[in-house]
Amino acid sequence: MTDAIRFYSTADEFGEFSNFAGYPIQLKGKSWPTSEHYFQAQKFAGEPDEDEVRKANSPMLAARMGRDRKRPLRRDWESVKVAVMREAVLAKFTQHADLRELLLSTGDAKIIEHTTNDDYWGDGGGSGKNKLGQILMEVREQLRKEPA
């Protein structure tokens, strides 16, 4: 087993780890086409924008809508965004048995969202925070302790 797993594009190996991967999740009494839709929509929780983002035709469009600063970002976003991402990732990997198995199959490998586009959620090409990778490893640890 490799000591590091790098993912980014949904078309690549471990592309299922991407928030753009087509795995619907159920959260807050609604169905979300991808974890990206959920994450981006939560920037506008309780606002009409939330449902518009949920209904976006693609995760890329949901991401664009979420980054559009013409939409009013919720005040506490910076303090809750990591918890929101954890919630989305946990839902994805507990609601899809095949994804759960894939994540558990990674053993103790470090999981890295490898991209120069993002040095917060990804590794920024090498020196970023890799928050999404960290959350995936936390969720993997949690799944090990919980029966399927």
Rank of each mutant, 00 (worst) to 15 (best):
G125H: 02
M60F: 14
P72H: 15
W32S: 04
N117H: 08
E87Y: 07
P147R: 15
V84H: 03
V80T: 11
R144Q: 13
S105C: 04
F7K: 07
E13N: 13
R74V: 05
T106I: 04
Q95E: 12
N57K: 08
T106A: 09
W32Y: 02
W32E: 03
E13Q: 15
R6G: 01
R69L: 11
K92F: 10
R64E: 09
K81G: 01
A109T: 01
P33L: 08
D98G: 08
L104N: 01
G46T: 10
K129I: 11
S127E: 08
K30T: 09
L73M: 04
T115S: 03
S9P: 00
H37R: 00
L102E: 14
Y23H: 14
W32L: 01
V139E: 00
A21T: 08
A97P: 12
Q42L: 11
T10L: 11
D3N: 09
F39W: 11
G29Q: 15
R74W: 04
F44I: 11
G107Q: 06
A21G: 07
I5M: 03
V82A: 12
E101R: 13
A41C: 05
D3M: 08
Q26Y: 07
E141R: 05
S9Q: 15
H37D: 03
A109E: 00
K28F: 13
G124Y: 05
M85N: 00
E113D: 01
R71W: 13
K92S: 02
N130S: 12
P59S: 11
A4H: 12
R64V: 10
G29T: 05
A41I: 07
R86H: 14
A91Q: 08
A109K: 00
G15M: 13
D49I: 14
I25M: 06
I25G: 04
Q134M: 04
S18R: 11
D98L: 15
T94Q: 14
V89H: 03
A97E: 14
F14G: 08
A97V: 03
I25E: 03
G122H: 07
Q142A: 10
L99R: 11
D76A: 12
E78A: 15
L103F: 10
R54S: 03
I135G: 01
K129D: 10
G128W: 09
Y120V: 12
R86Q: 12
W77K: 04
F20P: 05
R71C: 02
